[in-house]
């Protein structure tokens, strides 16, 4: 029982992080119908950026957090401007290759800047872990869960309540109609990229105290985030949250009771299963096709 609870706790923590990454995929997909294969690399930039700012440059944590997220959002801005906007034939296969290229490129840059070694950061706060029936729940884990739920609420409010958020949703439904009603479509896409990459950076900064961070951490995190987004139904914010938690707990139980070497395969197996059986996600509505 204690063991099971411990696995669930660590699964919740990882799952919360997958959820934040999934949010980034969902924001972008919701607004642009595009999937950014470089999303995981923005997570990596957020994590390593924070470590450099906070541990390397000794900038106070609060400021370093803000700077890291803003810095990554700026890279997201440049990415959209330089690599996505410039595409003459925006077919999926072209955009896939471009974002895969960006992913490899950013990883290469990460390797040059931070080297091949893993980095880590100390805990943000030093509270004693809470004891729940013998299993330890780290203060860091609670903090992460709080951040994730708050972030989902904030994004939900943004898309449902604010004019800009509604305009983004409208633009994704019909480019032409949005243009006719005076919504600056291109700005909406840009904003979606900035929001999505900033969310990726948030995922990056909150995991620095609980994991080793290195230039190549992005691929796996990105894929698992995508898997979570698919589980919850791509484009749905609450689905992303639920999908992330489900994946995190499943993975943690699988690693604990089966084999840790195959831990990552669980996520991919799940991803394939969803793609094959129900691509609209467990919680999502069934996709409709009109020709």
């Amino acid at each position: 029982m204690q063991e099971l609870l411990q696995y669930i706790f660590s699964g919740l923590t990882n799952g919360a992080i997958y959820a934040v990454i999934a949010l980034g995929f969902s924001i972008l997909y919701g607004a642009t119908r595009l999937i950014n294969f470089a999303h995981g690399e923005f997570v990596m930039l957020g994590a390593l950026g924070l470590i450099t700012l906070w541990q390397g440059l000794k900038i106070p944590l609060a400021i370093a957090l803000v700077l890291a997220v803003l810095g990554v959002a700026l890279i997201g801005f440049l990415f959209e401007r330089l690599a996505i906007r410039t595409v003459s034939r925006p077919e999926p296969i072209v955009l896939i290759i471009i974002t895969v290229g960006a992913s490899i490129f950013l990883r290469g840059v990460g390797m040059l800047v931070w080297g091949k070694d893993a980095h880590s950061a100390p805990a943000f706060f030093s509270f004693a872990p809470i004891d729940v029936m013998g299993a330890k729940l780290l203060a860091q884990s609670i903090w992460i869960l709080v951040v994730v739920v708050a972030l989902t609420f904030a994004l939900h409010a943004f898309f449902k309540k604010t004019l800009v958020g509604k305009a983004m949703t409208a633009a994704s439904i019909s480019k032409k109609a949005a243009w006719l009603t005076g919504i600056p479509y291109e700005w909406m896409i840009l904003l979606a990229f900035v929001l999505s990459t900033a969310t990726g950076a948030v995922a990056g900064v909150i995991i620095t105290p609980i994991t080793m961070c290195s230039y190549d951490m992005g691929t796996l995190l990105g894929l698992k985030g995508f898997c979570s987004a698919m589980l919850g139904g791509l484009g749905s914010l609450w689905g992303a949250l639920a999908g992330g938690i489900v994946l995190g707990v499943l993975e943690s139980l699988g690693a604990g009771f089966l084999s840790s070497g195959y831990k990552d395969a669980i996520a991919f197996g799940l991803l394939l299963a969803i793609l094959y059986i129900r691509p609209s996600g467990i919680f999502g509505a069934k996709d409709l096709h009109r020709f």
């Binding site: 690599a83 490899i104 490129f105 290469g108 040059l112």
Partner: peptide, 11 residues
Amino acid sequence: YEMIVYGLILM
């Protein structure tokens, strides 16, 4: 530089 070069080529 391999990854940077491949990434740039693709993009």
